[in-house]
Design a binder for these strands. Sequence first.
DNA 1: CCGACAACCTGACGGC
DNA 2: TGCCGTCAGGTTGTCG
Length: 270
Amino acid sequence: MPELPEVETVVRGLAPVLSGRRLASVIANRPDLRRPIPHDLGQRLTGATVTAVTRRAKYGLIATDRDDTLIFHLGMSGRMRLDPGDSGPHDHVVFTTNERRRIVFTDPRRFGLLALTLTADLAAHPLLAGIGPEPLGPTFTAAYLARRCEGRIAPIKALLLDQRIVAGIGNIYASEALHRARLHPAREGGTLTRIEIAALVRALRAVLRAAIAAGGSSLRDHVGVDGVLGLFQKSWTAYGREGEPCACGTAIVRSVQSGRSSFHCPRCQT
DNA sequence: CCGACAACCTGACGGC
DNA sequence: TGCCGTCAGGTTGTCG
């Protein structure tokens, strides 16, 4: 469940439970996810007080007063569950606070990851160092995106999915933003006009903001740490709507680009 | 630089 | 009911 709006929803759910609280225990139930879970995870985090819970791209960041930052990524199926009433075979890491709140990292497919770094080294961490600007931040401008698209023959959808160009966009919101901006997902990046780029930047921001306000999108999993489903999938205008009508009445078409489903309106998007 | 593809894993779903 | 193929929100590496 994890593109930028879903991770933002998780971070906002975790912050009030973790910020200013001491971690009473941090227990990993298995040694690895997509990569090894840091062997000193429990040792470095237990007893530490959380100073901030934030997000960069699709990564959640939990900083402590011991100058460590825990980096987490939810992969495809990862969730952070708050005080879950049940447990299962995919509950990989359990955090318990001094207030006895339990946060369980659950991830059936194990495409997620946990990493630890000194907070001072966070920006230089290999997972984060090459990542592009936040799409809701001040440096993600039409001028910037135009420069990154210049001369590129790759499809614009592929460029949007490239985390080095812009952070946090995934398959759903790439399709949604392109639909909103009336741009065909297969358009070569370098052929976009300045007007089109500006529309795309506005569309990305609008879609992401609306999705965050709705608590993200839920396919089959819960999004919020409290188990509350995100609602934004009800607002999808293109993604997952093959054969259903666009606002213009034309049926949405599904295609495959670089091995991933793409959805667009053949009439509106050019 | 480019795109296609496979790999990493499990689960859900539709068709037969 | 069960088996099988297909698909899924991501990332990373290889190959041509």
